[in-house]
Amino acid sequence: MKDVILLMVSATLVNNVVLARFLGLCSFMGVTTKVDTAIGMGMATTFVITVSSMGDWALETFLLAPFDLGYLRTVTFILVIAAAVQFTEMVIRKVSPALFRTLGIYLPLITTNCAVLGVALLLVEGRYGFVDSTVFAFASAFGYSLVMVVFAGLRERLALADVPAIMAGPPIGFITAGLLALAFMGFSGISAN
């Protein structure tokens, strides 16, 4: 259990995909104008990252590694991610058409970005078992969602602040993101010991 907790803390805070690995910056800047949208988007991305990591693990373990097909890894993972996005939409549509329509109005259609592929490639480096790889992917996605929500909250406050015209919008957003990344660097001192 201790190992699982350490794995989750490491993936969520210490090696945060957005602020430590700088993945998923497009959605980090694009969808963080409102906290509610950021939470919804974070949950959708968490689902896609976790589900796609399961498929990626299976293909890596039973196909790519045994047959020395590492050069096909990126293409294969992109295919798995695309399938996971479609699978997610299909499942939600089957579970509840009303839920599917409502989410389609307020959240982006395609919940994938470079962070999804980045997490899949990090799993290969980690050489985890099935459950550990899924937990790692879930924790990484949770870290992504956490940062999205924190940043959306900051941007909502920034929208009310008296920012000089030349710094308004993305410039002050990037400066804030930089300060947030510095704050998250504080977690890098955490280790198992």
Binding site: C26, S27, M29, G30, V31, M41, T45, L107, P108, L109, I110, T111, T112, N113, P170
Partner: peptide, 8 residues
């Protein structure tokens, strides 16, 4: 339609 990035 919305994109998940919408910043590019």
């Amino acid at each position: 339609p919305k994109a998940s990035c919408s910043g590019c």
